[in-house]
Design a protein around this nucleic acid. Structure first.
Lengths: 241, 241
DNA sequence: CGTACGTTTGATCTTTCTCAATAATGGTGG
DNA sequence: CCACCATTATTGAGAAAGATCAAACGTACG
């Protein structure tokens, strides 16, 4: 369960068992419901066991911005373990199962087991790296590249968790939400999506995306997987840590 | 030195001393030089002792995006302690002094002292929070708000470190770099800047910014300091951690 | 079987970009 | 100390990507 999240770091069997021994409470949440809202003071750390969720903020003018898509196995809020007040909301996209871990036992575990602390730091740093890439995506790429990039990132992250059915996936969000993730209007998202299809980069029926030309899609997306810091690939040195 | 960076967490005197005892090597860097480039494999962790720096990435199309401005006292790359390859570059803005800490002693320190690990997690989480706000800024605010927001954030962060001369500051970057931080053209940055001045929100001569109407500036920036997770204010609970 | 939500399409408008050029400014070498 | 040069700031006019407004069409679900 928490094992998923720490999958990038090599933990000893002892450490793994200690994580498994954490007290957890499972609960189901429906699409549209909020796990946390901005300004909340949470008392536990949650892990997304199954389903999808998004991190989002709302501007004073009322528009929404999605900053991350959470996939099964993601630890949703170490934030709340260390920071007092949530600076963003987390909304459920699809019917999900959440595991809540009370604050104190987890804090105590981190205190006793440095390897787990290191794994948490590692995980948080990767999250920051992905956020940096989102800033680039939204700040400096045109609509077409932005959307292609989100699709690429999502596919690769799913694949890395073993959740991707070969050549495509079911996008867990509406075109409006895709717009909120890319800083675009839903109308424009739609046009770009059809553009990508017209040019033979993707096939699509409603939310099901198939990669018709993965190479070309990556190209227009300006996508490289380095920022995801996935094991394997060019990062064998990481094992040395 | 490292004390600055850990200032949000309460560390015991022992822990503080252990940080001070870390071996460091100081060096000076000139504006425009790179501390790290994307793709580098660094062997130490650096702290910005004095001066300013930026985190940036370059897209395939060649445009630059700045994702963060580093101010004196910032630990620049815990990334490199845990992640193998740098996913972004760090460029020096003003003549700076950098303290390099070799990887191993710091890793070992984190392993031995859980309170310091916790402080690092805390610091990294705040960095992530700031990145989320940047995604919102660049994704969902218009040019005027974006620039005002960057100015507000910078002022508040400086002030929190005790580096802000009352009602204004010296912006350590060109209008072009301000554009790279906000996803705008330098030309447009210039017009917005004059617009802010014309409306009496700021006064400005070259890079010196004075806040003529701080309240109104915050308003148009849609700025709230919560995401900076500064001590004081609404976050007294944080002391409980 | 109707209602709500999501998708698709069209027409028009606006913000911001691009291209082009001029004016300050600060640093450098003579 | 001054002339020169490179960088940075400023201004103008036209072009374009994407937003806004409006509406029709599916599709799923109660």
């Amino acid at each position: 369960m928490l094992r998923d999240l720490l999958s990038h770091s090599a933990l000893s069997e002892d450490d793994r068992q200690a994580v498994r021994d954490l007290p957890t409470r499972l609960r189901k949440l429906d699409p549209g419901s909020y796990l946390i809202r901005e300004g909340d003071v949470p008392t536990h750390c949650s892990v997304l066991v199954s389903g999808f969720a998004i991190r989002l903020k709302v501007t004073g003018a009322g528009s929404r911005q999605i900053m991350a898509v959470c996939i099964p196995g993601d630890a949703i809020d170490f934030q709340n373990l260390f920071l007092g007040i949530s600076d963003h909301a987390i909304q459920i996209l699809t019917r999900s199962v959440i595991a809540d871990i009370p604050r104190e036992p987890l804090q105590e575990l981190l205190f006793r087991r440095p390897a787990i602390s290191a794994a948490v730091i590692h995980s948080t740093l990767i999250e920051a790296s992905i956020l940096r890439e989102w800033v680039v995506n939204v700040g400096r790429r045109d609509a077409r590249s932005r959307i292609a990039h989100v699709l690429c990132e999502f596919a690769v992250r799913l694949e890395a968790r073993g959740l991707a059915p070969h050549g495509g996936f079911e996008l867990p969000m509406t075109q409006e939400q895709l717009g909120d993730a890319t800083g675009l209007t839903p109308i424009h998202v739609n046009r770009v999506l059809r553009g990508l299809q017209a040019d033979g980069l993707i096939n699509r029926q409603r939310r099901n995306i198939q990669f018709a030309d993965w190479r070309a899609l990556q190209e227009t997306a300006d996508f490289t997987r380095r920022y995801l810091h996935l094991p394997g690939e060019d990062e064998i040195l990481l094992a040395a840590s």
